[in-house]
Write a protein that binds this DNA or RNA. Structure first.
Lengths: 228, 228
DNA sequence: GGCGGGATTATGTGCAGACATATTTGTGTA
DNA sequence: TACACAAATATGTCTGCACATAATCCCGCC
């Protein structure tokens, strides 16, 4: 037990792991713990707040702090820009724009972006590759209205990077799933249609207008890893 | 701007979103901001720390605080117990143990758990269902040595729930991928072998001994959703 | 010009005290 | 018994101050 609030956090976690404080049990008050550890209440509070943020503890005013009954595993997933992900694997990144044309979106896309009927979006298809081999097949629908008049050329810079640089700090949601390769995916990856692919779908918003919906089909065998 | 550190966080975020402070730009010091907002430095620090935790800001001692150059999207993923996930969808949960026998693990599993050669694990196969329809096909390798002498019966209670209740707060890693349904998966779900399935693989550790490796094959069409 | 080392500085952490807020708990009343 | 209300209490937040720590800056020296 060296020092600081992280030491307190570690010690509390240890007591939980050794079941000195079992699931559902109430642990001493901040005040009591601060006396035990010989520090200020704020310091204990910092440690406990951190453990609550990771789902180990549950805290309620007046009710006190207790060990979470069923530990909700909360993992933070970092979603990198594709270029970074490739380069971090020590491979060289390349990007190619395959198609770029205005089109009315299919119904599921229009619904997701909550677009009025008849809206026309910019439809992009591009291929991200690592060391020359296809890595991700991107299928993107972009709302021109959300771009503020600009109509960037995505031949050189990927839409992914342009958006990160020019429309950062947006909100949205993301979904993971598995799907069989479509005709386009199969052609891009050089595989049979129907081959299982890992799919990431992302919808991005500014305050209230939809910016883009993108579907990323990862190369066969791709695994998204994270630590609990 | 109502009150408290959350108001400060909101205001700082607003200035970033309106590009008053562009990507890479340094923002005023805590001291300057505390004067501007008319509050203590600690309060500003709380707000900025929170924004740094979500990847919007980057902070370094002496160097100051700046807007993240490439906003790393950090999403927190909550991994629920399977029963909870099913019940939250308003469906009734059921569980069935299909097989339970000691077996030497296949090489990839042994490597992942860093087991000595010749170790024998408990191999479980079970099916989680929602409203009577197969939901998840579970294939688990359990290290008896890590269970501390106990040999629970998993016919009634799923290994998932037993572990959460009896060996909580462990570490591990998790991976998402897509794979074609194997013979077992296909039989359980009543689908053709090779149908794309969403796969979650998890490895769990206590301090230094491997507890379990589990592969969850989700029903066809399953989507894992999260908010950014 | 290049380099090393100390002064400077912004964040990180800590303390003690105060008040705010949400619950729970206990009490008195209908 | 049931219910409304008040007291008690643990956490949530804020202030103001202090010192620690890690970069950076800058000055003097070679």
């Amino acid at each position: 037990m060296s020092h600081g609030w992280e030491a307190i956090r570690a010690d509390v976690l240890r007591r939980i792991q050794t079941r000195e404080w079992g699931p559902g049990a109430a642990i001493p008050t901040e005040e009591a713990l601060s006396r035990e550890f010989g520090c200020a209440r704020a310091t204990v509070g910092r440690a406990l707040r951190d453990l609550a943020a990771t789902g180990v503890l549950e805290r309620r005013r007046k009710a006190g702090t207790r060990v979470a009954m069923r530990p909700v595993r909360r993992a933070t997933l970092e979603i990198p820009v594709i270029r970074q992900e490739v380069e971090r694997r020590g491979q060289t990144y390349a990007y190619r724009l395959l198609a770029d044309a205005p089109e009315p979106p299919p119904l599921p896309v229009a619904l997701r972006l909550r677009l009025p009927a008849g809206a026309v979006l910019r439809h992009l298809t591009c291929l991200h590759s690592a060391d020359g081999r296809p890595f991700i097949c991107e299928d993107r629908w972009l709302n021109p209205a959300a771009l503020g008049g600009q109509q960037p050329d995505f031949a050189a810079q990927s839409a992914n990077e342009w958006l990160v640089a020019n429309m950062p700090y947006t909100a949205g949601d993301i979904a993971f799933s598995a799907a069989g390769a479509g005709a386009d995916d199969a052609a891009a990856f050089g595989i049979d249609p129907g081959t299982p692919l890992f799919i990431v779908e992302r919808t991005t918003w500014t305050a209230d207008t939809a910016i883009t919906f993108v579907r990323l089909a990862y190369m066969p065998g791709y695994r998204l890893r994270m630590t609990l």
